[in-house]
Amino acid sequence: MVTNSIEKEIRIEAPIEIVWETVTDPDHISRWFSDKAEMDLHPGGQASITWNDHGVTETLRIETVEPPRLFSFRWLNPAGETPDKSNSTLVEFRLSAVDGATILRVVESGFNELGWSEKTASSTVDGHIAGWGVHTDALIRYFASDRQLSVRL
């Protein structure tokens, strides 16, 4: 069996509306994702998120906006290409209210399409970075928010 996604869940002791705001409002996004964010919050809209330390800006395409339960976007497509199923991953935030708290679930899928998992094993850790080839840019952007990893990359 091969799966192609990562799923994570967390319980947050805050009402669903506040969690929705935290996930989608540019002023809040800077507290968990990037240093700066701009967002046109409707399906087909664009968002751009910037990490100051690395001078990296990533453009996202908003897919679904159903407050306060579902927010999704595509990203990691090569620069200049329109993100779709063949060249990007889909990130979905699913929110549900439970006794005044919120369960937040994130699912990122589409890594096989991105080509990451098609690469064969390489024997050294140093080699694996070089082995990414065309995907290295996407990886660097992906990990730009993590100082330690970006230094290594």
Binding site: R11, E13, V19, T22, W32
Partner: peptide
């Protein structure tokens, strides 16, 4: 690494929202 990043981001979302 991707999974670790999401772990971290979810924790940050949790602290910010709370």
């Amino acid at each position: 690494r991707v999974a670790t990043q999401w772990d971290k981001r979810l924790l940050d979302i949790k602290s910010a929202a709370e």
